[in-house]
């Protein structure tokens, strides 16, 4: 279970102004600006639930994910994932979660994917039998058998993303965080990734929280979605609920969300 309560996070950002004179001045005395990345964010996700987390760029999605992974410490508020505080006991927490950062790779660039997988197995201390079972399962579900021997640098983005997801699941985590897993993928890969996430959630009961810009991800995958804007949770409910808010019944979910962004001024 994931439970966040009144999480607040601010960043101090140096103010930069245009012009040479100002730049010289900034060298000596810098003005800082406090940016509120998250304000009073609270939500709970039960075991085995799948939740979509959407919002425009810079809304605080990734910050929330980073807090839940233990990469960042919030200014105030409480966060517990299966009873663990992510930033207090980093190592114990890391063993139980899987994370995919869609924009970055965790595979070693120049070696075949299997070699990366084997190293990840040792990092997570997964025992041989369990690893083989997980790997076989993932290979089948994500259709990896053809690409396991290829170095990561030679994979297409879609192939690589499938490998990234597999890499995050080799230790069979109970909770999976996906930060923009479908970004930049073609239609076939997107469908494959979605189908896999759905199966993973249904069959293994893995709790999944995914951030995305793609409303179709949400439509295809999750019952529940949370909308975040300017660091606040604006909406937490089902897609159907969202649709009832729209005056135009024929509007696509994309249009509804765009209208919502406008309504909240984000």
């Amino acid at each position: 279970m994931i439970a966040l309560k009144n999480i607040t996070k601010t960043f101090r950002v140096a103010k930069r102004q245009a012009g040479f004179g100002r730049a010289v001045k900034a060298l000596f005395s810098r003005e800082y600006e406090t940016v509120r990345a998250l304000t009073d964010v609270s939500f709970t996700v039960s075991d085995g639930e799948m939740v979509g987390y959407i919002g425009p760029n810079g809304a605080g999605k990734s910050t929330t994910v980073k807090i839940m992974c233990g990469v960042l410490t919030p200014d105030s508020g409480a966060c517990e994932i299966d009873g663990r505080v992510p930033w207090k006991n980093r190592i114990a927490h890391a063993r139980e979660i899987g994370v995919v950062f869609g924009q970055r790779s965790q595979l070693w660039w120049d070696v075949p994917v299997t070699d990366s997988f084997a190293l990840i197995r040792d990092i997570y201390k997964v025992d041989g039998k369990k690893y083989q079972k997980n790997l076989d399962e993932l290979t089948e579900l994500l259709d990896l058998s053809e690409i396991l021997k290829t170095p990561a640098r030679n994979l297409s983005l879609g192939q690589r993303m499938r490998c990234e997801i597999a890499a995050s699941l080799l230790h069979a985590p109970k909770t999976l965080f996906l930060d923009e897993p479908t970004i930049g993928l073609d239609a076939v890969s997107k469908l494959a990734v979605r189908q896999f996430i759905k199966r993973l959630n249904a069959e293994n009961g893995t709790t999944v929280l995914l951030t995305t810009h793609d409303m179709q991800d949400i439509e295809a995958l999750t019952e529940r979605m949370m909308l975040i804007g300017k660091g606040r949770i604006l909406l937490d409910g089902s897609l159907a609920e969202l649709k009832t808010r729209s005056p135009d019944p024929a509007a696509s979910s994309e249009e509804i969300v765009a209208a919502l962004y406008k309504e909240y001024g984000i």
Binding site: K66, C69, G70, V71, R90, I91, A92, A94, R95, I97, V99, F101, Q103, R104, Q106, I123, Y124, K125
Partner: peptide
Amino acid sequence: GSGEFDRALVRPRN
């Protein structure tokens, strides 16, 4: 800069 360090933080090792 590349965010590789964030990856290290979500792995269960020193």
